[in-house]
């Protein structure tokens, strides 16, 4: 078997694995109970799925110009996906959409109460 064929098969495996992970991320988005758990789905299987698809593409294309672009896509995905998840999660946090009945503990609420208390004191002073 020639090297090209081996690389093509590897590329196919990576592409299918990446697509399956992205599918799982989509299913998770639909099935998870609230926004915060859904952001987990958007942050992790989706990122790895995309990275696998990028590796698959790189193995199939095999040209330097294309691969450098794919590397950039991967780096920026790793850097920005957590930030996006954080922004959405933080924007939605103290809200009815969060299923507090499913939380074992919520230490951010105590933190926010403390900040609100400190601000109240400042206003009074």
């Amino acid at each position: 078997m020639s090297l090209d064929a081996v690389l093509d098969i590897a590329a196919a495996v990576f592409l299918v694995a990446g697509a399956l992970l992205s599918l799982a991320a989509g299913v998770a988005l639909l099935r998870f109970p609230d926004l915060l758990t859904r952001m987990h789905a958007a942050a992790k299987p989706q990122v790895l799925g995309l990275l696998l698809v990028l590796i698959g593409c790189a193995l199939r294309l095999r040209t330097g110009v294309d691969i450098t672009t794919l590397v950039l896509v991967g780096i920026f995905q790793l850097a920005t996906a957590p930030v996006a998840a954080h922004m959405v999660g933080r924007a939605a946090y103290p809200h009815d959409d969060i299923r507090t009945d499913l939380l074992v503990t919520d230490e951010l609420a105590a933190h926010l109460d403390r900040i609100a208390g400190a601000r109240d004191d400042e206003v009074r002073a």
Partner: peptide, 26 residues
């Protein structure tokens, strides 16, 4: 960790009749 995380979330998503519980910690 990234691979484990992805498989874990994928499994949670596909597992029938399971509602994951969570926590917010400092």
């Amino acid at each position: 960790d990234l691979v484990v995380a992805s498989v874990q979330i994928a499994w949670m998503a596909l597992r029938p009749g399971h509602t994951p519980r969570s926590a917010i910690i400092a």
